[in-house]
């Protein structure tokens, strides 16, 4: 651009959290998207363990995941609730269904997830040695629900697999739906958030599992997912760089712009390249501290959501 073509745009508008840069979503939304994706991954992996009849070999996926998923999702929803500006009206999500709104889809998906995975969690809980488990088992209603969950274990697993994939994709579509925010407006965000979510689920399983075989299996799975995630991130960056003016300007945010350092160091290097390297080294017997890689995957997953949510508000159309 030649110097004499310089243009200055000013506006008298100064609405809080809108001007000069949109900042309506703080830490609550990325925390929710991270936990939502994590639980989505746990649902999918749990369903795999049940449907492939590997409950015994995969104790974390089969028993721990359902019991942990409910409180984790609860914390995520708590964060989302804190983000609402009109908290008293939270029930309004459930007085309608709006098919064009991803948030409306998400609200209903979450409700069904609480139902189906709640049943699986209850059945796993009363059989566990967790506090009050045997007392809970004695309650009349619980007996009915437990026997229902046990009789329909496979059906619930299929439901949880579908719901897990839906939940994971929805956490991405929630952002990609906004044409007004070109940094988010990519169809790749759905698969990216799903793959990242399942990857964090596998990482959590690898950290928590007491079974050597399950740990290995989840680490292998995570290796594939992390590689896929790298490819998806690459495709997403390419599609932004090769897009129109607004797309290219938003690519700039992570290519030398204000979020480049956080994105490439935390999301790509710490969250993907280092854990991939560690996993490859452990396959060759050159690395034994297998908890480090999965822990970094969790850090990377959370960082991805933070960078996406914060950076995406930085640029409009």
């Amino acid at each position: 651009m030649q110097a004499h073509e310089y243009a200055e745009v000013t506006s008298t508008r100064a609405n809080p959290h809108i001007d000069p840069v949109l900042h309506i979503w703080g830490w609550e939304v990325p925390v929710y998207l991270f936990l939502g994706g994590l639980v989505a991954g746990m649902l999918v992996i749990n369903a795999y363990a049940v449907l492939s009849r590997r409950e015994k070999e995969m104790p974390a996926a089969a028993k721990l995941f359902p019991m942990l998923g409910i409180p984790l999702l609860g914390i995520g929803l708590g964060a989302l609730f804190l983000d609402l500006e009109y908290k008293l009206h939270v029930f309004r999500f459930y007085t309608t269904f709006e098919p064009t709104s991803p948030m409306s889809w998400g609200s209903w998906i979450l409700l069904v997830v609480f139902g189906t995975s709640g049943l699986v969690a209850l059945s796993a809980y009363v059989k566990s040695s967790w506090p009050l488990a045997s007392f809970t088992k004695g309650l009349p209603m619980v007996k009915t629900l437990e026997s229902f969950a046990d009789r329909h274990a496979r059906g619930l697993a299929i439901a949880n697999a579908v719901l897990g994939v839906s939940l994971g994709i929805y956490t991405g579509i929630l952002l990609s739906n906004f044409a007004a925010r070109p940094f988010w407006n990519s169809g790749l965000l759905g698969p990216l958030f799903l793959v990242s979510g399942v990857s964090t689920g596998a990482a959590l399983g690898a950290i928590l599992s007491s079974a050597e075989g399950e740990r290995h299996m989840l680490l292998r799975l995570d290796l594939m997912l992390m590689t896929t995630e790298l490819v998806l991130i690459g495709l997403w960056v390419i599609s932004m760089v090769s897009g129109g003016e607004a797309s290219r300007a938003s690519a700039e945010l992570i290519l030398g712009g204000p979020y480049a350092a956080a994105f490439w160091s935390l999301v790509v290097v710490v969250g993907l390249i280092v854990p991939i390297t560690l996993e490859l080294m452990s396959m060759r017997g050159r690395w034994r501290l297998t908890i480090v890689g999965p822990a970094l995957v969790l850090v990377g997953g959370l960082s991805l959501r933070f960078v996406m949510v914060i950076a995406g508000q930085h640029i409009g159309y």
Partner: peptide, 26 residues
């Protein structure tokens, strides 16, 4: 009376024409 203040509409507006009213609705 239906608004939860989720701010999806604020994010969706290319003109940034909306804001959060101090009473919570958009």
């Amino acid at each position: 009376e239906l608004c939860t203040g989720c701010k999806a509409c604020v994010a969706s507006c290319p003109y940034d024409a909306r804001y959060v009213h101090p009473n919570g609705y958009i």
